[in-house]
């Protein structure tokens, strides 16, 4: 479904992503991990068109989306959530999701009332229906994360890019959010590329994991392979641990 080939991105003298290649199969949950500053979010931004890669190609559903504007990529079926929630603070949750409903797909004749009905369905799905008239600025961090999920789902994506969706959530909220993501994947039949720092969650959730370090891909494989990979252990814990074999 998604094919990233030799993608490179520089910011001045800094190479944020360096010749990274990997692919995501339809229906899979792929984890993208790496220490802070490894280039995970930059890679996500490259996939969804916020940045244009300096080199390499990105293909989605057999189409070359390299350097395509974000709105066109979104309409092809790629949606995302943000590491730091970016809701429309002065808008109600219902209105915010309605924007996704109207523009996520080509629906030139969809009326506003139809859009809000559909938006209310996505709010109900993530458990925010009772907060439909609340301004986004009044929501808690968990509710903001769920609003982001509703907004992303409302664009009817085939590929969902999750950027540290569990950050700032307590264990109870994390398990609720995880359940919500499983439900979404099952109900909407979506593929997920997921950046996560909480290893316990990503190791259980993903079928395949890609590890980035200093902008380079250092490992790719199943969670078990990744957990035993010396390069990954070195990147996370330091060379001493990799040599002693104590992950």
């Amino acid at each position: 479904m998604l094919e990233v080939r030799d993608v490179t991105k520089h910011f001045g003298g800094l190479c944020a992503v360096n010749e990274v290649s990997f692919s995501v199969k339809e229906g899979a949950v792929v984890g993208l991990i790496g220490p802070n500053g490894a280039g995970k979010t930059t890679l996500l931004n490259l996939i969804c068109g916020i940045y244009k890669p300096d080199a390499g190609t990105i293909r989605f559903a057999e189409k070359d989306i390299t350097g395509m504007p974000s709105n066109r990529i979104c309409r092809l079926g790629v949606s995302r959530t943000y590491q730091i929630p970016q809701p429309f603070y002065a808008m109600t949750t219902l209105t915010g999701v309605a924007v996704s409903v109207i523009h996520g797909k080509k629906r030139p004749h969809m009326s506003l009332s139809d859009a809000i009905l559909e938006a209310s369905y996505y709010l109900e799905f993530v458990g925010l229906f009772s907060k439909r008239d609340t301004l986004a600025r009044e929501l808690t961090i968990y509710e903001l994360r769920m609003l982001e999920l509703a907004r992303a789902l409302a664009t009817t994506p085939k590929l969902l890019l999750l950027d540290e969706v569990m950050a700032g959530l307590n264990p109870a909220e994390s398990s609720k959010a995880l359940e919500m993501i499983w439900n979404a994947q099952e109900q909407f039949d979506i593929t997920i590329l997921w950046i996560e720092h909480i290893m316990k969650i990503i190791m259980n959730a993903a079928q395949q994991i890609v590890v980035l370090h200093y902008g380079q891909k250092i490992a790719e494989g199943t969670p078990q392979e990744i957990a035993n990979d010396a390069k990954v252990i070195e990147a996370y814990l330091g060379g001493q641990y990799a040599q002693s074999g104590r992950p």
Binding site: C48, I50, P69, S70, N71, C74, R75, S79, R80, Y82, Q86, F88, V99, S100, H103, G104, K105, R151, T155
Partner: peptide, 9 residues
């Protein structure tokens, strides 16, 4: 930027 990511041209 967020609006663009939600499909708004």
């Amino acid at each position: 930027d967020v609006a663009r990511m939600m499909g708004v041209d």
